[in-house]
Design a protein around this nucleic acid. Structure first.
Lengths: 214, 214
DNA sequence: TAGATTGTTAATCGATTAACAATC
DNA sequence: TAGATTGTTAATCGATTAACAATC
């Protein structure tokens, strides 16, 4: 992998899409695919496929295309998949619970080790077989167990404090569902997920179509 | 609003962020803000703020800046907020339940009218005071009640069929949480939310930081 | 070998940033 | 009025697309 030139955000966001499509191809028993065919499936151009992949190395062969299995594995490696990534969930509300119960993450290596919440009534209980502990024990748990990812499903009033704790404990990345964008020091990765932003984008698009019709 | 030139996706995605920051400014009692100050809060450039807003009209005043309340209301209108947008939820699993229980949507006008599921055991029950009906009744319900948005939290094996139903019934937009991207005819808006893509992006970023350290 | 398809360079397109006259 | 700040045009930067020699 070429570490010198920074890969653009646009490319990074497409990587999981490639991964998804390659996974589907594998399931259908497809062994090889050309950039042209893959692009058609994904509604992008063949040029873009080749440019994207060549950020990370030449995975194809002239006259042949790309081996689906190999490309799938390579993109998985680029995405940091392959091993186990220990996670914790902060916040056992509805959204946290939904994510804890989602089966697709563990199979990709995102294993939620513990859940942390402030509600005394649920501490000691389990969700999907995972123990709920008090939020005050989160920092030590992260440190002692080399947790890499903190998933954040808490009210935004609590978010900053919890982020601070997690960062001090050496967390590597934060997956933030709380209302405000969060910021962290260099060396910690953050992805903000704003479901309400996404819904408003949909509303915009509906509105746009309506206006076009006038 | 200038309908002739298409507003870019990059701008559309920033609109909810402006909306969020303006909302916070209103709460802190700020009455006016310059593009420079707003940009600083949002980690973008003042030029970009002005360019973005001028896609939709001149909301500012020279020497003064922007009135926070007015700008908030204008962006709300651009986003299609203000009235009620009737929604239905397809799929009452963990994720669907989490979204149904989220309080922030209804206050923005996204009111979930009914929930549809295939599980006979839960039909007739309620989540957050909203009735669960059988999925076979979804199409008529959408048609008879001019539902605008279908929220899709079903397994991907069921997604295509449900989308087809909803589109035939005249749905205006689909908020899709199921695993695969969905496609719809012109005139229907779609926003795909892929939580696992988002998590993999985080994993990439963590990995990138690790590699940079080497 | 001939056909196919890559990796990569060059051209184009679009989005972001800079600059500044207009004006509150 | 003088200072501030917009709206908008021009310059720059970066991402996407096109083209093609290399080669399987």
């Amino acid at each position: 992998m070429n570490r010198s030139k920074k890969v653009s955000d646009a490319v990074i966001k497409r990587l999981p899409r490639y991964y998804r499509h390659l996974s589907a191809l594998m399931e259908s028993g497809v062994e090889r695919i050309s950039s042209k065919e893959l692009a058609a499936r994904m509604n992008i151009t063949a040029s873009q496929v080749r440019q994207d992949l060549n950020n990370f190395g030449g995975f194809g062969h002239q006259g042949y295309g790309y081996n689906v299995n190999i490309l799938y594995r390579e993109i998985g490696a680029i995405l940091g998949l392959g091993g186990e990534l220990p996670c914790i969930m902060a916040g056992a509300g509805h959204l946290g619970t939904a994510i804890i119960n989602y089966k697709g993450f563990a199979s990709r290596g995102f294993v939620i080790k513990k859940i942390f919440d402030i509600d005394e009534n649920i501490i000691g209980k389990e969700i999907n077989g995972i123990e709920i502990m008090h939020i005050k024990d989160m920092q030590n748990y992260i440190r002692d167990n080399s947790v890499e990812i903190a998933m954040l499903c808490v009210p935004h009033s609590a978010a900053n404090e919890i982020v601070k704790c997690a960062v001090e404990a050496g967390i590597k990345g934060i997956w933030n569902f709380s209302y405000h964008d969060i910021s962290v020091p260099d060396g910690v990765a953050v992805v903000n997920v704003h479901l309400s932003d996404s819904l408003m984008t949909l509303s915009y698009k509906i509105n746009e179509i309506k206006n076009k019709g006038l």
